[in-house]
């Protein structure tokens, strides 16, 4: 399984990860090597084997719907790179 530099660009876009030209060729090589290692899995017959997402049978754990205090707004915002009027401030999403 060989990843091309174009594959790397596509995956980086999906992952919202900026990469340099150097990253692109290095990731193509290293990820191809790692993916090669996975080929042995593809050779295994797993017909009829159900997938395991997590090992124990805990499903839809419920708790009582009881209101409790949350963190004060100033604490929640304390780590924000940018804030304004009690909100997180982000770059414009839509062009005006």
């Amino acid at each position: 399984m060989n990843l091309t530099p174009e594959d790397v660009d596509h995956v980086a876009t999906l992952a919202r990860l900026g990469i340099t030209a150097e990253d692109r060729s290095r990731f193509a090589e290293q990820l191809s090597g790692v993916l090669e290692h996975f080929r042995a899995l593809q050779a295994l017959d797993t017909t009829g084997i159900s997938p395991t997402a997590q090992v124990f049978d805990l499903h839809s754990v419920m708790r009582d719907d009881v209101a409790r205090p949350s963190l004060p707004r100033e604490q929640v915002l304390a780590n924000a790179p940018r804030q304004e009027d009690g909100f997180f401030r982000v770059q414009a999403v839509l062009e005006t």
Partner: peptide, 24 residues
């Protein structure tokens, strides 16, 4: 990058689902 690739359209069954089956 590896995880995004393994979960991306067209590769999910070959990688992620396969790995979950081997996990079983």
């Amino acid at each position: 990058m590896l995880g995004t690739y393994a979960l991306s359209s067209g590769y999910y069954d070959a990688y992620y689902r396969k790995a979950q089956q081997v996990r079983t």
